[in-house]
Amino acid sequence: MTGLTSFYREKEAYLLGIGFIVFLLALWQCVPLLITLPRGYALFFTTPSRIAATFYRLLVEGQIQEHFYVSVAAFLSGLGIAIAVGLPFGIVMGRSRTLDALSDPYVTALNATPRLVWLPLFILWFGIGIWSKVMIVFVGAVFPLLINTYAGVKNVDRVLVNVVRSFGANEWQVMKVVVLPNSLPYIIVGLRLAIGRAILGVVVGEFFGSSKGLGFMIASAASNYKVDVVFAGVAIFMGLSLILTLSVKKLENSLARWRPEAAKNF
């Protein structure tokens, strides 16, 4: 008995956390057994077991894979462009005060506004297809990367820069030896936020500007009242963002062990 108690004490956090999720899922599963739903609501209701069965069926039929690849393609290309644009711009803005002042109004305004407002314009310009999605993923993901890179570069210790300069380093060497290593933890934080925004962009972009992809699958299933397909799609997005964000978070923690943990911020 003591073994069990000490086991519980040790793993209390995990047991309670996972136990609560399992409990909620079980409760959800039992709702139809406990109460009879009115006919109108039964249409919108599904249970975890039915969602799992639907998920498996869609997987076997290959529907999920088909939509999945489309979504991943938009996600990766949008995020890739965002990294390719956001990092250099962030570094330049951090190193040059004039460029910083010139671009500040745009960065502030675009960052404060949800970038999804541009979606109708992108659909109008690029049509329904991958490019409007890539663009909406790009504008969503680029600002966290740019702003965090900028913050990292700005935060560089002036003394270190001066030391390296005194020893005759040029701007490129200052960058390589001092600025980039110092900014890396910030860039990783930016990457984590950017992944969240990019997934948001894929979801919403596919709701409206698409005829394929997981977001499209969710939207079209919802309008046909196939609630379990909706939840299967939502589950994939949840799993994807959890895996990606948590692995970047791990990287972040190992890179910046000395920094105190702030409030969670996705």
């Binding site: 977001g215 909706v230 959890l242």
Partner: peptide
């Protein structure tokens, strides 16, 4: 951490 917007429809 997950895109709850996916539940919008």
């Amino acid at each position: 951490a997950s895109p709850l917007v996916a539940l919008a429809p």
